[in-house]
């Protein structure tokens, strides 16, 4: 076979051309249970950590910690539970690509909203707010408040 196929695009296998080859394909690979148990235990520990850390007030650092832990947990779910660790190249490219485009969306929206009011202060102000929220009476306790 002298056919050139970019490995990442074709997922490494050309089915139509190599019938015999793909019979014993990698989907028969069975992940050892210890990976799954390990993932479960780490996820539980990380959940505990994120809840524990949230009890203290570190200001904006809380968001950083919470997001860092969430990203780590997501990484475990994606690589172990969703099997990305053992998956074809293109499946990875596709999924990670979606995050790139999401980031583009985020970036450009914030390149607008973060820099409003430069031309005219009116752009950054709010007028005619019709809030449905009823103001709290003096001494009244907000319902359903949790520490």
């Amino acid at each position: 076979m002298d056919i050139f196929i970019p490995t990442i695009l074709s997922g490494g296998v050309s089915y139509m051309s190599n019938h015999a080859h793909s019979e014993e394909h990698s989907h028969h690979f069975i992940v050892p249970v210890r990976y799954y148990v390990g993932a479960l235990v780490s996820l539980l520990i990380l959940t505990f950590i994120t809840v524990f850390v949230a009890q203290f007030n570190f200001g904006s650092f809380n968001l950083v910690v919470a997001m860092a832990v969430a990203v780590l947990k997501a990484g475990i779910v994606i690589s172990i539970f969703m099997g990305m660790k053992w998956d074809h190249g293109f499946n990875r490219v596709a999924f990670l690509g979606s995050l790139v485009f999401l980031f583009i969306f985020f970036l450009f929206v914030f390149s607008d909203v973060l820099f409003r009011g430069y031309r005219s202060p009116l752009e950054a102000t709010q007028i005619n707010l019709k809030s449905p929220v009823i103001p709290l009476e003096p001494g009244e306790v907000q319902e359903g408040y949790h520490k």
């Binding site: 583009i104 969306f105 450009f108 607008d112 909203v113 973060l114 820099f115 752009e123």
Partner: peptide, 18 residues
């Protein structure tokens, strides 16, 4: 195509920077 949508918002009050 994903990087240019803001040209529809040139007079909508989006920031000059964007």
């Amino acid at each position: 195509s994903f990087l240019v949508w803001g040209h529809h918002l040139f007079v909508s009050g989006q920031s000059d920077y964007a």
